[in-house]
């Protein structure tokens, strides 16, 4: 299984931001996207995850293979940590959540209301959801925001375990995760040069 992205151009609000992006991820590989703020990393990740169509190019993988984690964690504050994870497990049709709780050291917090968690704990819960999805391609947008060094190590270990199981990870991050095997792709050279073509209707469809 591999993720084959060829000639990908992405647009935000109808304006092309990045174009001609090519990369391939094979099972067990991780790719880190780098680039200055606002260059379009999030847009690439949302496009790969299937939340928006690409302007051009192909993503050689089904949407059903992707698990996406964006800036927001999608946590319901009035549900407990366990209820939050169990909900996603039921939606993705996977079983137990204990492995995910373990991987992010949330077992002790399992019956706490998610609204009472700190920002870093919420982030860990958001990332634990990725384990629960059981999908092969993890698409992660700034996964380490508000995590402390210990939690970053937990996250790196979880990614490594996912890769070892034949998974793939595509992420945008600025800090060093200690994932030495991950390749790094600087997207800044792929900035779109062509002016926005006049497709007023298309940007609404």
């Amino acid at each position: 299984m591999e993720l084959n992205v060829t000639g990908l151009s992405v647009a935000r609000g109808g304006i092309p931001v990045l174009e001609g992006l090519d990369f391939t991820l094979r099972a067990g590989e991780a790719l880190i996207l780098r680039g200055p703020n606002g260059v379009g990393k999030t847009t690439v990740l949302r496009t790969v995850a299937g939340l928006q169509p690409p302007l051009a190019g192909t993503i050689g993988q089904e949407r059903d293979a992707m698990a996406y984690a964006g800036h927001a964690d999608g946590i319901k504050t009035t549900l407990t940590v366990r209820e939050n994870l169990e909900f996603w497990a039921a939606i993705f049709g996977t079983g137990g959540i204990d492995a995910a709780l373990d991987a992010f050291d949330l077992t002790g917090l399992a019956d706490r209301a998610a609204g009472g968690l700190s920002a870093g704990q919420k982030r860990r819960l958001g990332l634990a959801r990725m384990v629960v999805t059981g999908r092969p391609v993890w698409v992660l947008d700034e996964p380490t925001v508000s995590l402390d060094t210990g939690a970053v190590a937990l996250f790196a270990a979880a990614v490594r375990a996912h890769l070892a199981g034949g998974g793939m990870a595509l992420m945008a991050t600025h800090i060093d995760l200690g994932l030495t095997e991950a390749r790094v792709l600087d997207v800044a050279p792929f900035r779109a040069k062509a002016p926005a073509h006049d497709d007023f209707d298309g940007s609404f469809l």
Partner: peptide, 8 residues
């Protein structure tokens, strides 16, 4: 607001 819609 909390991002669950993207995830759903």
């Amino acid at each position: 607001e909390d991002g669950s819609l993207d995830l759903l």
